[in-house]
Amino acid sequence: MEIRWLEDFIALAHTRHFSRAAETQNVTQPTFSRRIKLLEEEMGTTLVNRQTLPLSLTPAGEEFLRLCEQVTERVRLSRERIQQIADDQARRIVVAAPQSLLSYVLPEWLARHDLTRRVEPYLRATSWLLADYFQALERDECDLALCYWPRERVALDIDLTNHESLEIGTETLVPVCAPDETGRPRFALPGQRRHPLPCIAYHPRGLIQRVIEARLTRLSQAAHLVTLNENVQTANIKELVTLGYGLGWLPWRAARRSLESGELVRAGDERWDVALTIRLFRSRQNLHPGLDALWHQLQETRHDPSLSS
């Protein structure tokens, strides 16, 4: 049974005439009559009294008419609601972010700016490298990209000609490791040339690893490290560091609770910290209807003090 059969029956009940009902349904009379007959066969009884003029409904037809009106009204309302959901989804702005920002920054930032219903996180982006975010912006796979960004000069192969950004906060990478039996760091910077410290590092082509390496080269004291593992996601690095496999640099927001509980300890003092900013990027060619208004709204707030580490 199709919804249009129910709509046909309602039209017939209102016009009490096959020809006029067929016209209102934009079909030929033979087609319309065949649909009504199929409907009666489906219901297993006669719904229309064809012996009267104008025709009338049988008692079963009157009861069925009420059901048809209820069902078609529910379908109409459902269609409207589904279309509204689709329209809302089409208007939502998609933001891509690495796992650590998605976990520790984005929810608070969206809530603070009342953007939870307007901006949708893009979960496929949590393990991307920096270049992937800008490629996604260029092909409109996402509308915004929330990224860590260096505060000091770092060579990055990123063309920002067609992009603009806003700084929304800051972050600090801190060197951490598991404690030994006395609560002291199991691996303490700077290490020794003959006995380098095991390091759980970020992906070598990722921004964070480049920033860490650039920072270390600027220090007067060299760090002696040997890389045991390279990872994209902060959560994976934190897990390996917590298990005692080596030291690693974690965003302060990701490490704070573990440091407070003693599950992790600092592997070096503030000299070894790495400063980052948190920046929101967009492509100037993006034509999303709500993006300009959102961008202007965010420009008015600029840097969010609550997002400073």
Rank of each mutant, 00 (worst) to 15 (best):
Met1Leu: 12
Ile3Phe: 08
Glu7Pro: 01
Asp8Pro: 00
Leu12Cys: 02
Ala13Lys: 04
Arg16Asn: 12
Ser19Trp: 03
Ala22Thr: 09
Thr24Ile: 11
Thr24Lys: 13
Thr24Leu: 15
Gln25Glu: 11
Pro30Thr: 11
Pro30Tyr: 12
Phe32Arg: 05
Ser33Ala: 15
Arg34Pro: 05
Ile36Lys: 06
Lys37Met: 09
Leu39Gly: 08
Glu41Asp: 14
Glu42Met: 03
Gly44Glu: 02
Asn49Ser: 14
Gln51Asn: 11
Gln51Lys: 11
Pro59Trp: 00
Ala60Leu: 09
Gly61Pro: 06
Gly61Trp: 05
Glu63Gln: 13
Glu63Trp: 08
Phe64Arg: 09
Phe64Gly: 10
Thr72Ala: 12
Arg76Met: 10
Glu80Leu: 08
Glu80Trp: 03
Asp87Phe: 09
Asp88Met: 06
Gln89Gly: 06
Ala90Trp: 06
Arg91Ile: 02
Val95Gly: 01
Val95Phe: 00
Ala97Met: 04
Pro98Arg: 03
Ser103Asp: 14
Val105Ser: 03
Val105Cys: 03
Trp109Ile: 12
Leu110Gln: 01
Ala111Met: 12
Asp114Trp: 00
Leu115Glu: 01
Leu115Gly: 07
Leu115Thr: 02
Arg117Asn: 13
Arg118Val: 08
Val119Leu: 05
Val119Cys: 02
Glu120Asp: 06
Tyr122Phe: 14
Leu123Tyr: 02
Arg124Ala: 14
Leu129His: 09
Gln135Asn: 10
Glu138Leu: 05
Ala145Leu: 04
Leu146Thr: 00
Cys147His: 10
Cys147Gly: 09
Tyr148Cys: 05
Trp149Ile: 12
Val154Gly: 11
Ala155His: 09
Ala155Phe: 12
Ala155Tyr: 07
Leu160Asp: 06
Asn162Ser: 12
Ser165Lys: 10
Thr170Glu: 05
Glu171Cys: 02
Pro175Thr: 07
Ala178Tyr: 04
Pro179Lys: 10
Asp180Gly: 08
Glu181Gln: 13
Gly183Cys: 13
Gly183Val: 11
Gly183Thr: 12
Arg184Ala: 15
Leu189Ala: 06
Pro190Cys: 07
Pro190Phe: 04
Pro198Thr: 10
Cys199Trp: 14
Pro204Leu: 00
Arg205Glu: 15
Leu207Ala: 07
Leu207Asp: 01
Gln209Met: 08
Gln209Gly: 08
Arg210Pro: 02
Arg215His: 14
Leu216Tyr: 06
His224Asp: 07
Leu225Ile: 10
Gln233Ser: 10
Thr234Asn: 10
Glu239Arg: 12
Leu240Arg: 14
Thr242Gly: 02
Leu243Gly: 08
Leu243Lys: 10
Gly246Arg: 01
Gly248Ala: 05
Leu250Val: 05
Pro251Tyr: 00
Arg253Cys: 03
Ala254Ile: 01
Arg256Tyr: 11
Ser258Pro: 00
Ser258Trp: 00
Leu259Ser: 09
Leu259Asn: 12
Glu260Asn: 01
Ser261Met: 05
Leu264Arg: 06
Asp269Lys: 11
Trp272Met: 09
Leu276Pro: 08
Thr277Gly: 15
Ile278Glu: 07
Phe281Arg: 03
Phe281Thr: 01
Ser283Ala: 11
Arg284Leu: 14
Arg284Gly: 04
Gln285Ala: 15
Pro289Lys: 13
Gly290His: 08
Ala293Phe: 03
Trp295Glu: 00
Trp295Ala: 02
Trp295Leu: 06
Leu298Asn: 00
Thr301His: 10
His303Phe: 15
His303Pro: 00
Ser306Glu: 15
Ser309Pro: 15
